[in-house]
Amino acid sequence: MAGSNGSVPTLDVENLQTYFFTKAGVVKAVDEVSFSVQPGKVLGLVGESGSGKTVTGFSIMGLVDEPGRIAGGHIKFRGEDLVGASEDRWQQLRGNQIAMIFQDPMMTLNPVLRIDTQMIEAIQAHENVSRDEARQRSRDALGQVGIPSPDERLKAYPHQFSGGMRQRVSIAIALLNKPDLIVADEPTTALDVTIQAQILYEAQKLCKETGTAMIWITHDLTVVAGLADEVAVMYAGRLVEHGSVDDVLDKPLHPYTHGLIGSVPSRNKRGKPLEQIPGMTPSLLNLPPGCAFKTRCPRADAACETAPDVTKPDGGHRLLRCHHPHLDELAEVPA
């Protein structure tokens, strides 16, 4: 895939397949997913609950556990394919060059270890530094994410923090070793608006200044609009639409994306009824053949009984997986 200046992308995911081999059958949580992220860029990964966003993140971290397995594809981190890499290699990369912020802030910190223990070990796992220096860096990281009196807070236990503060601690932990890639799994959902803005600002600054690439998983299209450079839309384990934020949000081509954007309240749609996507997310267990969206899609027809391939609707950077996309959007003269 063509990078903006031909440099090696920080992350290049090709045809990733992550399946869970459960007793009830195979759950294709991530299926034929491809995307890449350039240094200093932010990819927004959106999709409804259960569409496979978190599993995609775990795959990139090498943290898919039994009964799950990466069944195919490549995860190239700065050119190095990590699929099949040794556990030692993963351990070197994790937390050091690739970091992840987990979705549920209440569960990510070990309840019986103090915050300083949990931060210092993240530094000492990768660098031979003294405890004092590691503590100093932990303190600075806490300050960076807006935790007041970080010195005291280092000695506290997780249950002494609110959910939002725990989320900020785990963000601080992800930032500790200045990674090249951060997978942020809905990191701001537990935060109030001002803190969220601050975190988004810090995230953007980090990307610009250090060239850190970021995958920002979220439900919130306004966050994507403000933060991301590119957006990938996931549905039932597959990417259905992928392109620059401006293209996708302004001219959604896939019926699912179209519906998604139609369901967001906004000023210029005031007065009109909000659109809704009818029906429910299908179970990923033994998905029937054809397009996974067909039961809910207003445009579905006989052609949709076969799975659509990836197409390039504008012949350029955009990718799409649909037999009947909203090509009329493309025809519209951009403002």
Binding site: F102, D104, L109, N110, H126
Partner: peptide, 16 residues
């Protein structure tokens, strides 16, 4: 638990 996975995500060794 998630916090064990998170510890792994930090690159902490299996022994630790």
């Amino acid at each position: 638990q998630d916090y064990i996975k998170f510890a792994r995500a930090k690159g902490v060794s299996r022994n630790r």
